[in-house]
Design a protein around this nucleic acid. Structure first.
Lengths: 255, 255
DNA sequence: GAATCCGTTTCGACTATTCCGGAAATACTA
DNA sequence: TAGTATTTCCGGAATAGTCGAAACGGATTC
C-alpha cells in the first residue's frame, strides 16, 4: 500500500543531505542524532551517497558534494530567463551601484536565480537558490500579482503569511489590495517588508500571454533613498531593464 | 545481503535525476525509455521527487529543481578556499583580461569551484561544478603533483588517462616526469592538453603541511601569447595570486 | 459527439530490499 | 595498556519497492 509519500528511502536520503547542510558537515553519529534515526541506518545511507559521489567524506565528516552545484548550475544555464536576464542585471547593478536580484516561483516559493552586486551594494548574504515566501518582498508580490487567483489562494493556504520583518504584510485583505494595484502601476516598492531597513523596488517579467516568468529588483538601504528623485531614477532603471529582458525573452527564439 | 551498493532506490533516484539533466527535462515516458525501466516505476520516483520539491513538473515535463542550486551554492559559500579565493580571482581576471578558474579535487576528479571572465576572456562554456579528469589540464596537474603517490595511483587506476585534446598526456611515465617538475618550479603550463588551441597557466594552493587545497589558472587562446614576455607577465600574476590566496587561507582563522 | 489514440496515473500482490539490533573492528584518550 | 567512543559489518524479520495491468484524461479524427 504505497499510496502517498511514495518512496520512503528517497525522502530519508534527502532528509539526511539537508541535515548535513544544516550541520555544516557532520559525522555519522552526529547526523543520526540530529535526524533521530539509528546510526547503522544513517551509515548505510551515507555510504551509498558517498559511493555515488553525491556526498564527500573527509576524516569521517560527511558533507554534500559538488554535484549539487553542478546540477543546479547546469539547470540554471538552461533557463532562457536566466540567460537573457544575466547581462541586463549586470548593467543594472553597474548603473545603480546597488544590489540587484532575479526571482522565479517554484513550488509556491520565491527562489533567487541570480544576484549581482553593484559598487555600493548592501550585503544581504543571499545566494542563488535561496527560497523565501512570496508575500514578503517586492519581488514576490510582483509574481503573486500576475498569478491566477486560485493559485494565489493555494500558495497562501500552504505557506501562510508569516512576518519576515517589521513591515511585512500579514493580512490577506491588505495583500490583495496591494496586488491589484501592482498590475496597474507595473512595479512594487517594499520598505522593510522582507528585511528591516532595506528598500526594494521590483518589476515583473511577463510572457506573451501575461503569465509571469519572474521578477527583478534593486535593493538599497532605506536611508540612502532620501528624496523622490533618487527613487524615480531607480524606478525608471528597474522598469526599463525589466522591459528589456521581457522583450528579449519573448521575441528571440527562446520559448 | 545488502553488501556493496547499499540502498538501491537512492541510486535509481539519482540516476533518474541525471537522466532529466541529460535530456534537458523529459516526460515520464521519455525518461523511462532513456533509463530503460518500467514507466510505472519511473512515475513513482518522479512523483516522490516532485513531492519533496527536488524536481519540478510543468506540462508533464519534469526537470531538476532549484534546490540543487541552493544546496550546491550554500556548500560552496562555506568552503574557506572559495571565500578567500573569490575576490582574488576577480582581480586576476581584471588584471589579465583572461578567463580565470579555481579547481579542487573530489572523488578523484577535478571540479571547477569558480570561474571569472576578464574583458577578453575566451568562452569555454564551463560553469561552477563541472568535472574533468585531473591529468588533462594544468589545473589538474598542479593538484596531482602534490597528492601522495599512492593516491595518484588510485586515481589513475580508476579513471585512466583518456585524451581530451590533441596534446593530452596519455602516458603514465611522461606524466610522472612532469609532475615531479611541477613541484620544483611551482607552476604548470599546458598548451592544448585539455582543449585544442587553449593555453593554461596554473599554480597550486597548498595548506600548512604541503597538502593541496586546490589550484588556480589563467586560460588564453594560444595565439594570443606570442612572445616570452606575455607569458612571463601571466605567470607572475598567477603565481602571485596563488601565493596571496595561500597565505590568506592558512593564516586567517579559517582552517 | 463518438471513437480512437496517446501518455499518465492508480492499484495491489509478490518479493526483493531496507531496517536496525547487536557484534566486530577501528580510532582515540588517558 | 586498558578503556571509551565511533564506525563498520552482518543478517534475518518485516517493510517497502517493483511493475503488470487496468483505469483515466485529453487531444485529435471521423
Amino acid at each position: 500500500m504505497n499510496k502517498n509519500g511514495r518512496i520512503k528511502s528517497i525522502q530519508t536520503a534527502f532528509e539526511l543531505i539537508e541535515g548535513l547542510e544544516q550541520l555544516d558537515g557532520a559525522r555519522a553519529s552526529t547526523l543520526a542524532d540530529h535526524v533521530d534515526r539509528p546510526i547503522s541506518t544513517v551509515h548505510d545511507y551515507l555510504k551509498t551517497l558517498e559511493e555515488i559521489q553525491y556526498v564527500t567524506k573527509a576524516d569521517n565528516v560527511y558533507r554534500p558534494g559538488t554535484r549539487f552545484l553542478e546540477i543546479g548550475e547546469a539547470e540554471r544555464m538552461k533557463q532562457p530567463l536566466y540567460r537573457v536576464a544575466e547581462p541586463e542585471l549586470e548593467s543594472l547593478a553597474d548603473e545603480t551601484g546597488e544590489l540587484v536580484s532575479l526571482m522565479i516561483e517554484e513550488h509556491g516559493k520565491g527562489v533567487l536565480l541570480d544576484i549581482k552586486e553593484g559598487e555600493d551594494a548592501i550585503q544581504l548574504h543571499t545566494y542563488p537558490g535561496v527560497r523565501m515566501p512570496l508575500h514578503s518582498s517586492a519581488l514576490g508580490k510582483c509574481i503573486l500579482a500576475h498569478l491566477p487567483d486560485e493559485r494565489v489562494d493555494e500558495i497562501i493556504d500552504e505557506h501562510g503569511l508569516p512576518a519576515m520583518a517589521k513591515n511585512t504584510v500579514t493580512d490577506r485583505d491588505t495583500l490583495d489590495e496591494q496586488l491589484t494595484k501592482v498590475c496597474e502601476q507595473g512595479y512594487v516598492i517594499d520598505r522593510g517588508e522582507r528585511i528591516d531597513g532595506v528598500l526594494c523596488l521590483a518589476a515583473p517579467i511577463l510572457g506573451t500571454t501575461d503569465n509571469v516568468k519572474g521578477s527583478i529588483c534593486v535593493c538599497s538601504p532605506t536611508s540612502r533613498i532620501d528624496n523622490e528623485t533618487d527613487l524615480e531614477r531607480i524606478r525608471d532603471a528597474v522598469v526599463r531593464t525589466a522591459n528589456m529582458i521581457q522583450v528579449n525573452l519573448n521575441y528571440s527564439g527562446a520559448r
